[in-house]
Design a protein around this nucleic acid. Structure first.
Length: 876
RNA sequence: GCCGGGAUGGCGGAAUUGGUAGACGCGGCGGACUCAAAAUCCGUUGGUGGCGACACCGUGUGGGUUCAAGUCCCUCUCCCGGCACCA
C-alpha cells in the first residue's frame, strides 16, 4: 500500500488505506456542499447567468432510471457551466397534482396529500444521494397553496381578458378516470394515462384560447435553433396551419348557404357533391323529416373514437335531400352526410372532388356519385381515374376561364373572382383546438369561481385567494369528492352575500407545469406571482427532459409564457432557449412461457448470460434454479416486464459516481441507453483505477511547477496528449453534449498517464498537471470522487469551486507530424515529416516510403494529392 | 399513407467540414500473481489467407459522383418515433 499525505478541509492527513470506498467519499462531499451551501444561487446583475433545468418529476413514489439519467445530464451541464464561471441556477420541484395520488388513495386508504408529501420526502432523499448540484432553497411543489394560488390568480386574469372562457362542447371523456381530456391527451382514441377508449360528452367547461396564439407559436418555432428538429416538426404538425378558401354554396330552395373550407380551390370545377358532418346544423334540419337519416346520425354519434372505428375507417354516408348550387357553374350537386367529415375542423362541411381527392374518390365509388376530371399533369400524362384520384398539383382543365392555369395561379384567380362575388374569401385554418382545462377531479387546483343564483358566475376576489383544496379527503371512485363536500361547495356569493355554490372542478395538471420554471426564480415571493428576479434568470438556457413531452407540456408552456407576457408579467416570448430530449433507458427482457399459465418475467439481475468462445450470447439461466430462461430482446424498464434497476441498490453497491459515470458513458444523451451490469462494473473499475493512480502519484508528494521550456520529448508528448484531451473534452461537454466521447477521451488520457514512466522529478510535475486536469474534467460527471482526489492532489480549495482547465496552445505544437500515404486511395504506409515541411518535401518523402514504392512499382504517377498535416494520395 | 430519425465487430458505441473505419468500454481468448478462487495486472481480439512482412474483403441493398465515400446523390429493404378521415 502507498501511504499518502493530503490536505483535507484545511488540515493535513495521512492515509494508509487507499481502497476506494464510495459511501464514505460521497457522504463527505455531500456534507461539504451542504455545509457550504455550494449550490445556492443568488442573482448578480451584470454577471452572466446559466439557468439549467430538468423537467420536474411527478412524485410517484421512487425514482426510476429515466429520472436518474435526466438529472445526471442536467447536473453535468450545470457543474460544467459553473466551472466556466457562469452564475448557475439548477432548481428542483414536484409536479405534485394528479390522478395517481387519487388512485393510490383508493387502493391504500391514505389521503392524496399524505401520499404525495411522503413520496416527495422519499424521492428528495434519493436525489440528494445522487449528489446533484441543486439549489434546494427554491424547491416547490405544485400542490402547495403558495404555488397554486397563482394558478388561480392568473386564471382570473385570463378570464378577465377573455383568454379563458366557458362553453359547452363535445369533449373527450375518459370513462376510467371519469374526467375530461384535452385533445392533446387523447392518443389513438384513448386516454393518454389510462389507455381507456374514450367517448364524446357534452359538458360545460373552461377553455384557454391557445388558438389565438397559433400563428405566433408556429412562426416562432423557426427562431428556436436550440431545439431538436424533431420536436419543432411535431409541434408544427400539431398546430397544423393550412391555407385555403372559404366558399359559400347557396342551398337550393333555401335562404341558407353552405360554407365550406378547401385548400384546393383549383379543383372547384370538379365538385360533384358536398359532404357535411353528422353534427352539422343542416344535417339536423334534414333529419327532422327523415327517420332513416336520424337513425344514421345517431349511429355516427356512437361510433365515437373507438379503436375499432378508426381501424375499419369505413366510409359511410347518406343523402340529406338538399342540393347545393355551384357558385361558378350554377350546377346542382347533392349534399350528403358523411361520417368522415369532422365538425371540429374548418366549417364541418367540405366540397367533394372525387377526381382529385382520394377520400372523396372512395366515397363517390361506393355511392355511385359522378367523377369529374379538372386537373391534368403538366407533362400531358393521362391519369387513370378508375384506379384512384389524381391528387398532385397540375394544370386546370374543364374549368371555364381558369383552364391552363397552374395551382398557384388558379388559387389566386379563383379567390379574387369569388371575393368579387362575395361568395368566398381567403382563409387560414388551424388544426390546433382551444385547451380545455376543467377536470372533474379532486387532486388538482380548484377553479376559483362561485355560482350564484342572482349574480351568475362570480370570480373569487383576489384577497380571498387561494381557494384552498381540502387535503384530507378520500375519493371513492365515483366522481369528485369535492362535489359531495358541503363544507367546500357551500359559500356566500362574493357579490351579493347570498348563499351560493363554489365551483368543484379543478384545473388540468398541465396548467401547473406550464409556468413552474418561472416560479423557481422567486419561489419565496408571497406578494406577487413573479418579481424582477425572473427577468434575471429567464429564459431557461438549457432544458432537459423526455421526448414524450414534445407536444403537450412544451406547447402549453410556450403558450402560457406568451399569455404572461401579454399580461405584463414577463418580458419573454420563448421560455426554453435550448432543449435536449433524452433517450429512454432500456434493459434486457427475460421470461419463461409455461405451456399453460401466464408468462413469467425475470429481472436481469437474477439471470446469468452465457457466451460462446467468440463472446456471442448463447443462452441465459436463472441464478435461482440454474434452469434456462428465454431472452426476448430489450425494452424500456417497466414493472410489467420486471426489467427495472433500482437506483437505491445501485448507489449502495457501487456509489452515485459509478451510476452517473455509467449513464453518461453508455450512450449519447439523446439516444436510448441499454443497461448493462458489466458496463456498470466497468465504470466502477475505471473509478478505482483513477483513485489508485492519483493516490500512487500523491504518495510522492506535491512536485514543483512544470518547467514548460525545459521538457524532453516524452514529457512534451504527454503534455500534448493532455492538452489535446482538454480541447476535445471541452468541445464534447460544452458544445456537443457528447459526454460519452468526453469520458472516452479522459480514459484514453489516463491510460497514457499510466504508461508514462517516472524517471525524474520533472516527470512527476507533468503527471501532476495531467492528473489535476483529469480530476477537473471529470468533476462534473463524478463529483464526489473528484472532491476527494482534488484534496489528495494537494489542494485546499474544494474542486467544486475551481475553474475548468485552460488549453495551453504551445503544448499542442509538435515538431513532426505523421502523414498517411495512400496509393489509389488505399493506405500503404505512414511517414513522419517535420510539421513545417513544404508540400513538395512531403510529396518526396511519401514517394520514398518503401511499401508505397513497391505499389507504385514504376507505374507512371498521374497525380499526387496532399492534404496538409494529414494525408498524401498517390494516383497511378 | 404523410413527416422525422436510423441500420457500423460478438455487444454498447466512435469516426465533428468527404481524408487512417472500428476510439473508449463491455464480452471473449491467452498469460502473470495465487494452494485455489476472487480481485488486480500484462498481451490479444472485424473476417479470410500467410510463420511473417503483408495481401484481399469489410459500415443494411444495388447503382452513381470523387484522387478519396460510413459520410454526398439516386434506388430498394428493414427498424424506431410522431401524425393520420384536417378538407
Amino acid at each position: 500500500m502507498y501511504p499518502c499525505e493530503f490536505v483535507f478541509a484545511g488540515e493535513r492527513r495521512v492515509v494508509t488505506d487507499i481502497a476506494y470506498h464510495p459511501a464514505q467519499v460521497e457522504a463527505e462531499a455531500q456534507q461539504y456542499w451542504e455545509e457550504h451551501q455550494s449550490f445556492r444561487a443568488t442573482e448578480e446583475p451584470g454577471r452572466a447567468k446559466f439557468y439549467c433545468l430538468s423537467m420536474f418529476p411527478y412524485p410517484s413514489g421512487r425514482l426510476h432510471m429515466g429520472h436518474v439519467r435526466n438529472y445526471t445530464i442536467g447536473d453535468v451541464i450545470s457543474r460544467y457551466q459553473r466551472m466556466r464561471g457562469m452564475n448557475v441556477l439548477q432548481p428542483m420541484g414536484w409536479d405534485a397534482f394528479g390522478l395517481p395520488a387519487e388512485n393510490a388513495a383508493m387502493a391504500n386508504g391514505v389521503p392524496p396529500a399524505k401520499w404525495t408529501y411522503d413520496n416527495i420526502a422519499y424521492m428528495r432523499r434519493q436525489l440528494r444521494s445522487l449528489g446533484f448540484a441543486i439549489d434546494w432553497s427554491r424547491e416547490l411543489a405544485t400542490c402547495s397553496p403558495e404555488y397554486y394560488r397563482w394558478n388561480q390568480w392568473l386564471f382570473l386574469a385570463m378570464r378577465e381578458k377573455g383568454i379563458a372562457y366557458k362553453t359547452t362542447g363535445s369533449v373527450n371523456w375518459d370513462p376510467v378516470d371519469q374526467t375530461v381530456l384535452a385533445n392533446e391527451q387523447v392518443i389513438d382514441g384513448r386516454g393518454w394515462r389510462t389507455g381507456a377508449g374514450g367517448e364524446k360528452r357534452e359538458i360545460p367547461m373552461y377553455y384557454l384560447r391557445i388558438t389565438d396564439y397559433a400563428p405566433e407559436l408556429l412562426a416562432a418555432l423557426g427562431e428556436l435553433p436550440g431545439w431538436p428538429e424533431r420536436v419543432r416538426t411535431m409541434q408544427a404538425n400539431w398546430i397544423g396551419r393550412s391555407e385555403g378558401l372559404e366558399i359559400d354554396f347557396p342551398v337550393e330552395d333555401s335562404a341558407e348557404r353552405l360554407r365550406i373550407f378547401t385548400t384546393r380551390p383549383d379543383t372547384l370545377y370538379g365538385v360533384t357533391y358536398m359532404a357535411i358532418a353528422p353534427e352539422h346544423p343542416l344535417a339536423l334540419v334534414a333529419a327532422r323529416s327523415n327517420l332513416e337519416l336520424r337513425v344514421f346520425l345517431d349511429e355516427c354519434r356512437h361510433q365515437g373514437v373507438t379503436e375499432a372505428a378508426l381501424e375499419t375507417a369505413e366510409k359511410r354516408g347518406m343523402p340529406t335531400g338538399f342540393h347545393a348550387i355551384h357558385p361558378l357553374t350554377g350546377r346542382r350537386v347533392p349534399i350528403w352526410v358523411a361520417n368522415f367529415v369532422l365538425m371540429s375542423y374548418g366549417t364541418g362541411a367540405v366540397m367533394s372532388v372525387p377526381a382529385h381527392d382520394q377520400r372523396d374518390w372512395e366515397f363517390a365509388r361506393r355511392f355511385g356519385l359522378p367523377i369529374h376530371e379538372v386537373i391534368r399533369p403538366r407533362d400531358g400524362a393521362l391519369p387513370d381515374l378508375d384506379t384512384g384520384a389524381f391528387t398532385d398539383y397540375g394544370m386546370c382543365i374543364n374549368s371555364g376561364p381558369f383552364d391552363g392555369l397552374d395551382f398557384a395561379a388558379a388559387f389566386a384567380a379563383i379567390a379574387t373572382h369569388l371575393e368579387g362575388l362575395s361568395a368566398g374569401r381567403r382563409r387560414t385554418n388551424w388544426r390546433l383546438r382551444d385547451w380545455g382545462i376543467s377536470r372533474q377531479r379532486y387532486w388538482g387546483c380548484p377553479i376559483p369561481l362561485v355560482h350564484c343564483d342572482h349574480c351568475g358566475e362570480v370570480p373569487v376576489p383576489e384577497d380571498q385567494l387561494p381557494v384552498l383544496l381540502p387535503e384530507n379527503l378520500l375519493p371513492d371512485g365515483s366522481g369528485s369528492p369535492l362535489a359531495k363536500l358541503r363544507s367546500f361547495y357551500d359559500c356566500e356569493c362574493p357579490q351579493c352575500g347570498k348563499p351560493a355554490r363554489r365551483e368543484t372542478d379543478t384545473m388540468d395538471t398541465f396548467v401547473d407545469s406550464s409556468w413552474y420554471f418561472l416560479r423557481y426564480a422567486c419561489a419565496d415571493q408571497h406578494q406577487r406571482m413573479l418579481d424582477e428576479r425572473a427577468a434575471y434568470w429567464l429564459p431557461v438556457d438549457q432544458y432537459i427532459g423526455g421526448i414524450e413531452h414534445a407536444i403537450l407540456h412544451l406547447l402549453y408552456s410556450r403558450f402560457w409564457t406568451r399569455v404572461m407576457r401579454d399580461l405584463g408579467l414577463v418580458r419573454l416570448d420563448e421560455p426554453f432557449r435550448n432543449l435536449l430530449t433524452q433517450g429512454m433507458v432500456l434493459n434486457d427482457i427475460f421470461c419463461r412461457r409455461p405451456a399453460s399459465g401466464r408468462i413469467e418475467y425475470f429481472n436481469p439481475a437474477d439471470v446469468r448470460v452465457e457466451n460462446d468462445e467468440k463472446g456471442r450470447r448463447v443462452s441465459a439461466v436463472l441464478l435461482g434454479d440454474g434452469l434456462p430462461v428465454e431472452s426476448v430482446g430489450i425494452g424500456t424498464m417497466s414493472k410489467s416486464r420486471n426489467n427495472g434497476v433500482d437506483p437505491n441498490r445501485l448507489v449502495e453497491e457501487y456509489g452515485a459516481d459509478t451510476a452517473r459515470l455509467f449513464i453518461m458513458f453508455a450512450a449519447p444523451p439523446e439516444q436510448s441507453l441499454e443497461w448493462s451490469d458489466e458496463g456498470v462494473q466497468g465504470a466502477f473499475r475505471f473509478l478505482r483505477r483513477l483513485w489508485r493512480a492519483v493516490h500512487q502519484h500523491a504518495a510522492g508528494g506535491v512536485p514543483g511547477e512544470v518547467a514548460v521550456d525545459a521538457l524532453d520529448s516524452r514529457q512534451a508528448a504527454l503534455r500534448r496528449a493532455l492538452h489535446q484531451a482538454i480541447v476535445k473534452v471541452t468541445d464534447d461537454v460544452g458544445r456537443r453534449y457528447t459526454f460519452n466521447t468526453a469520458i472516452a477521451a479522459v480514459m484514453e488520457l489516463l491510460n497514457e498517464i499510466g504508461r508514462f514512466e517516472i524517471q525524474a522529478d520533472a516527470d512527476r510535475a507533468v503527471v501532476q498537471e495531467a492528473l489535476e486536469s483529469v480530476v477537473l474534467m471529470l468533476s462534473p460527471i463524478v463529483p464526489h470522487i473528484c472532491h476527494r482526489l482534488w484534496h489528495v492532489l494537494g489542494h485546499a480549495r474544494a474542486v467544486v469551486d475551481e475553474r475548468w482547465p485552460e488549453v495551453d496552445q504551445t503544448a499542442l505544437a509538435s515538431d513532426s507530424v505523421e502523414i498517411v500515404v495512400q496509393v489509389n486511395g488505399k493506405v500503404r504506409g505512414r511517414i513522419s515529416v517535420p510539421a513545417a515541411a513544404r508540400e513538395d518535401e512531403v510529396k518526396a518523402a511519401a514517394l520514398a516510403e518503401e511499401n508505397v514504392n513497391r505499389h507504385v512499382a514504376g507505374k507512371p504517377v498521374r497525380r499526387v494529392i496532399v492534404v496538409p498535416g494529414k494525408l498524401v494520395n498517390v494516383v497511378v
